[in-house]
Amino acid sequence: MLEIKNLKAKVETDEGGKEILKGLNLQIKAGEVHAIMGPNGSGKSTLASVLTGREGYEVEEGEVLFEGKNLLELAPEERAREGIFLAFQYPVEIPGVSNTNFLKTAVNDIRKSKGEDPMSSVDFLKMIKEKAKLVDIDPQMLGRYVNVGFSGGEKKRNEIFQLAMLNPKLSILDETDSGLDIDALKIVADGVNKIRSKDNAFIVITHYQRLLNYIVPDFVHVMYEGKIVKSGDKSLALHLEEYGYDWVAEHLEEIAK
């Protein structure tokens, strides 16, 4: 589904470009869940930004193929319509735009791009109710402005709710667990597990192993200074939890072997 080859990318800063991704490789197939773990600043969010087309990043080398298509030349909305979804580490507040209107526009713009008619209001409301249940969101919240006045946990749940509404092929969860208490974490993980299928895939970016007890990954990758330095199965996450990221730094050469 997704193929990242030798990806090198810079972030544009006031002092010029700063290289963040330094030759990253990753392959993801339908039905798989990949966890990416790594210390703060290792480039996890940058990878998510580059994959979704956020402004301010420059790809210097390498390629990203999504179902065989060159992802990097598409606009953010085109990537979303191809089936890529990012649950933001920091969901954006949009005063004046209601959740419902936002999602209705999203659903219908995606349908339009496929030559389909807009969804009827009745069907849309039905879908909203059904998906809100998945992440235990109070439908009342949907009349409110996007993320405005939401608690940290509500924002994260809202991200997963949007994911459920848009039904993407590849979802990237960027530290969706941060700021969640254990109950909220379970709700979010539960929602993801229900959405998980043989046809879709997930990249779960996280700092801690905790989330992976609930969303069990098929692969775990360790990211360090802009590269994936080690990949393994879910036991790698436990190992990291035990030894910490310092262990990665200290045993970099060993690990790479």
Binding site: R54, E77, N101, A106
Partner: peptide
């Protein structure tokens, strides 16, 4: 970006 990342066209995002 948040709006567009959900599949909303640039123009519709601007209008919203």
């Amino acid at each position: 970006f948040y709006l567009r990342s959900r599949g909303i066209s640039e123009n519709d995002a601007r209008i919203l």
